[in-house]
Design a binder for these strands. Structure first.
Length: 303
DNA sequence: GCGTCCAGGTCTACC
DNA sequence: GGTAGACCTGGACGC
């Protein structure tokens, strides 16, 4: 957040079972632009695009409240929509009471409710989450960061602070530009097709957050999008508030093998079978178990 | 510095 | 339904 411009502060009241740092740092999204995280100040920054207005913002804890800092010149009629966007990114309106009740039943899971864990940072739009997930497939995290950074630099609206590109901006691009300048490689045609389908209205991706479709049908819908296999679809579901799928990748397989198999490789079917007992929350419990060591390292003061 | 190998998910073709 | 190979990039490694 540029400090040279006058800022104004908007208070946000989080729900009682909310933990700011665990929500922000619970997976890697905070490191992908337009998000950025200042660990010294404990502040998450972002850039919103609301009705054609590009708005840099920053949020951090201030006592029991959260303090959202925005440019003082921000029009009053955009303040509530911006607060709603940030609340949605931080999953503040998601009801995790049932999830936390379930985790209290097992001694090994009580830390989850005790530390108010379970919310996973997401982007302002499903489109942004989907493109970013595509950028995580079959590559290192460093390459994912490069891809997203270049997409924002190349197509993101704004001067200086850039928001994530709209579907239309990417749709107007070309496979060649996405391949070379944004380093998407063979993912370029997948990203282009996704952007074009969203831009022309044939894929109503934003409705996925509120659709009444059963999760299995929504999963099948996501799988029909090119480039979205079991890993990408399962993890996109988590960002839509559905936790019925695990979204296995090589890192969590290795982590599971370390935790449950003394380092020996364990089949996906065995992992799936193990988590079936947790019902519709299994994907979230799985992710929190796999990353518990992050919680113990990053959040030692609370865990 | 250069070449080779490998890891990382998904798609397609094939059995 | 299961499997092999291709896709692309960057890092590790050997020379």
């Amino acid at each position: 957040m540029p400090q040279s411009r006058p800022l104004t502060t908007l208070p946000i009241h989080p729900p009682g079972d909310f933990d700011f740092r665990r929500t922000v740092l619970g997976h890697g999204w905070y490191a992908l632009p337009p998000f950025r995280y200042d660990s010294e100040r404990g502040a998450l920054g972002g850039v919103a695009s609301l009705g054609g207005t590009i708005i840099p913002w920053e949020i951090r804890e201030q006592g029991s409240l959260l303090e959202l800092r925005v440019p003082a010149r921000l029009a009053p009629h955009l303040r509530m929509p911006l607060k709603a966007t940030v609340r949605s990114c931080l999953r503040m309106d998601e009801d995790l009471a049932e999830f936390h009740r379930q985790t209290r039943r097992l001694v090994s899971h009580r830390w989850i409710a005790r530390t108010r864990s379970g919310r996973l940072l997401r982007a302002p739009t499903v489109f942004e989450d989907a493109v970013k997930l595509l950028c995580t497939t079959n590559c290192t995290w460093a390459l994912t960061e490069t891809m997203v950074k270049r997409l924002v630099e190349e197509f993101g609206p704004g001067d200086g602070a850039r928001a994530f590109p709209s579907p239309e901006a990417i749709a107007r691009s070309s496979e060649r530009v996405l391949r070379t300048r944004c380093t998407l490689g063979y993912r370029a045609p997948f990203a282009l097709e996704l952007a074009r389908r969203v831009a022309d209205g044939s894929l109503e991706i934003e409705s996925w957050r509120t659709t009444p479709l059963p999760t299995d049908e929504l999963y099948a819908t996501i799988r029909r999008v090119k480039g979205f296999g079991p890993y990408a679809a399962g993890n996109l579901l988590k960002l839509l508030g559905r936790y019925d799928y695990l979204g296995l990748d090589s890192w969590v397989r290795a982590r599971y093998a370390t935790l449950h198999g003394h380092g020996r490789k364990i089949s996906d079917a065995t992992i799936e079978r193990h988590y079936k007992q947790y019902g519709r929350w299994r994907g979230l419990i799985f992710w929190l178990e796999m990353t518990r060591h992050w919680h113990e390292e990053k959040f030692r003061r609370q865990a």
